[in-house]
Simulated scan of single mutants.
Amino acid sequence: MAGDNRAGMQEPGRVPDPAELADRAAIAEIIALHCRGVDRADEATLKSCYWPDATTAYGPEAVPAHGFCTELVPAIKAFRQTHHLVTNILYAFDGPQARVESSLIAFHYLAGADGADSEMTYLGRYLDRFEKRGNVWKIRHREPVMSWSQNAATTHDADHPALSALRQAARFPNDIVYK
């Protein structure tokens, strides 16, 4: 189906020009920084990914993104760790606007008070509307779409001989990335 423009995506296999490659790199950086912001519970990094007037729809209605970022930090800290991975980023540009779809795998490690730790694995997509203002791309609106999730018992074996020498991830400002 050559020329089929499903979900606003450009012609598959089309060679983007250098300016579009630069725009894609800027958008991919924001998506990766958002993952860092969530996993490190770093409110400033999260907010830097959104325009001040941006919205998110993690629930049934869109809310201001910066307020959502503030509320997300303590919710994330309820988990011992989280790890968000984004792949398969697809871009549809329309001037200073871009619709971006990316696949998401997120792991949420919950330490149980009784030693019964669990992990919630979430698989889905981010449907983002990005906007370029001046020479900067940021999220204008984000809506996650869930494919499925699962919960399972888990363990954290930091004392395993193969892992004991590795640094352990931490929240902002204690993670090694901030040193």
Rank of each mutant, 00 (worst) to 15 (best):
M1A: 15
A2V: 03
D4Y: 12
A7D: 06
Q10W: 06
Q10S: 15
E11P: 05
R14Q: 11
R14L: 13
R14C: 06
V15P: 00
D17I: 07
D17N: 14
A19K: 12
L21W: 02
E29H: 14
E29Y: 08
I30T: 15
A32G: 08
L33E: 12
C35A: 15
D39R: 11
A44M: 09
T45M: 12
T45R: 15
S48W: 06
C49D: 01
W51D: 11
A54I: 03
T55G: 04
T56N: 14
Y58Q: 11
Y58V: 09
P60T: 14
A65K: 08
A65T: 03
E71G: 15
A75G: 08
I76K: 06
I76D: 00
K77F: 06
A78W: 06
F79C: 13
R80W: 08
H83V: 07
L85E: 09
T87S: 15
N88G: 13
L90G: 10
Y91M: 08
P96A: 05
P96R: 04
A98C: 14
V100N: 12
V100G: 01
V100E: 01
L110T: 08
A111F: 00
A111H: 01
G112R: 10
A113F: 10
D114R: 02
A116P: 04
S118M: 07
S118Y: 08
S118A: 14
Y122K: 04
L127R: 07
L127G: 02
R129D: 11
G134M: 07
N135I: 05
I139K: 03
H141C: 09
R142T: 07
E143F: 00
N151M: 12
H156F: 12
A158N: 02
L163F: 01
L166Q: 11
A169T: 13
A170I: 00
R171A: 14
F172C: 13
P173C: 00
P173D: 03
K179P: 12
